[in-house]
Amino acid sequence: MASPQSGWDRNYQDQPTRPYPPVQPQQGDRPSVDAGKLWAGGFGTAVVAALVALVGILLVRGVLGIHILSPDDAGTYGDATTTTYAFGAFGIAILATAAVHLLLLLMPRPMAFFNWIMLLVIAVGVLIPFTASAELESQIATAAINLVIGLCIMSLLNSVAAIATRAGRTQGDGML
Score class of each variant (00 low, 15 high):
Pro71Arg: 10
Leu103Phe: 13
Leu59Pro: 01
Val100Met: 08
Ala93Val: 08
Leu103Ala: 14
Leu58Tyr: 01
Leu64Gly: 05
Phe114Met: 06
Ala93Lys: 09
Arg109Ala: 12
Leu106Lys: 15
Val60Thr: 08
Phe114Gln: 07
Leu106Gln: 15
Tyr77Phe: 14
Gly88Gln: 03
Met107Ser: 15
Tyr77Glu: 00
Ala99Asn: 12
Asp72Trp: 08
Leu64Phe: 13
Leu58His: 01
Gly75Ser: 03
Phe90Glu: 12
Arg61Gly: 01
Leu102His: 12
Phe113Val: 13
Leu105Ala: 15
Pro110Gln: 10
Ser70Phe: 11
Asp73Pro: 00
Tyr85Ser: 11
Asp79Trp: 01
Gly78Pro: 04
Ala112Pro: 00
Ile92Val: 14
Asp79Pro: 00
Val60Gly: 03
Thr81Ile: 06
Leu106Arg: 15
Ala86Asn: 08
Leu69Asp: 05
Ser70Pro: 10
Ala112Asn: 14
Ser70Lys: 09
Thr82Ala: 08
Ala89Gly: 08
Leu64Glu: 10
Ala99Val: 15
Thr76Tyr: 04
Thr83Leu: 12
Ile68Lys: 10
Asp79Val: 00
Ala86Asp: 10
Leu105Gln: 15
Ala89Cys: 06
Thr83Val: 08
Leu105Lys: 15
Ala99Tyr: 13
Thr84Lys: 15
Ala98Val: 13
Phe114Trp: 05
Pro110Asp: 10
Ala96Asp: 05
Thr83Met: 04
Leu58Phe: 02
Gly88Leu: 03
Leu105Trp: 12
Phe87Arg: 09
Ala96Glu: 05
Val100Gln: 12
Asp72Lys: 12
Gly91Asn: 09
Leu95Trp: 02
Pro108Ala: 14
Leu59Ile: 01
Met107Val: 15
Thr97Gln: 02
Gly78Ile: 01
Ile66Gln: 09
Phe114Ser: 08
Asn115Ala: 10
Val63Gly: 07
Val60Ser: 03
Asp73Thr: 04
Thr76Arg: 07
Ser70Gln: 07
Gly62Met: 05
Ile94Ala: 05
Met107Arg: 14
Ala74Asp: 06
Asp73Ser: 06
